[in-house]
Amino acid sequence: MTEKTATAAPFILETTGLVKEFRGFVAVNGVDLKVRRGHIHALIGPNGAGKTTCFNLLTKFLPPTRGTIRFNGKDITNEAPQRIARMGMVRSFQISAVFPHLTVLENVRIALQRSLGTTFHFWKSGRTLDQLNERAMALLAEVGLESYARMVAVEMPYGRKRALEIATTLALDPEMLLLDEPTQGMGHEDVDRVMELIRKVSANRTILMVEHNMKVVSGICDAITVLARGAVLAEGDYASVSANPVVIEAYMGSEAAQLVAEGH
């Protein structure tokens, strides 16, 4: 269950002076990030910029060296990662995060079953989980996976696995989703499908996503933060960011060319 607070503050997630050092190497360097409620916010930047590390800090998978994180007005800097999920901020991972040897239906049920309050009941029959099937099927239908329900997740094509991850994440009905490169390694069709899916689930939700594909960024994102060497390089909407010479220089090469080519 997500614990929703009815705060109407414009920013759902705010960090101040976020720093992460790995044995002297500064991976995230003084990031002040503000994510507006209801936005699809992109976090972009060259490889090794610190995007995934940022996600790990935000969701408490890593403790920050310095700085504070506020979610829905509440300081979450010292919370445990599972608590963050229960507060309504659920992340995905850069490397596909399904439960490979469980069926597609079971994958979604893992997220749903915590609400039954029987997750410690080792004496109960597994059939008591069947009451979740209907809800799980509805979630699968939402991402177009209903025909895969009985398949073992590892057998699914890559693009479908990402869709399954989104369905599993949505099962918690989170207020905020953090997606780490949801379209990475996908063909055109899959990219389009996942992009549509993100747009669809963004209603009533806030999404922060790491994305390399500029077509996706320009297509669905309301705001962009550019990260380079751990620090924020630029912020704004797509037009202003893509025209920013500092950003173009940081990207140097193919991605910059793509950025310019697609700039409006």
């Binding site: 998978f61 599972q82 659920v90 995905s92 399904v98 915590r114 918690l172």
Partner: peptide, 10 residues
Amino acid sequence: ENEQRTISLG
């Protein structure tokens, strides 16, 4: 199957 993912689901 995936401990990190299980944590991220609360």
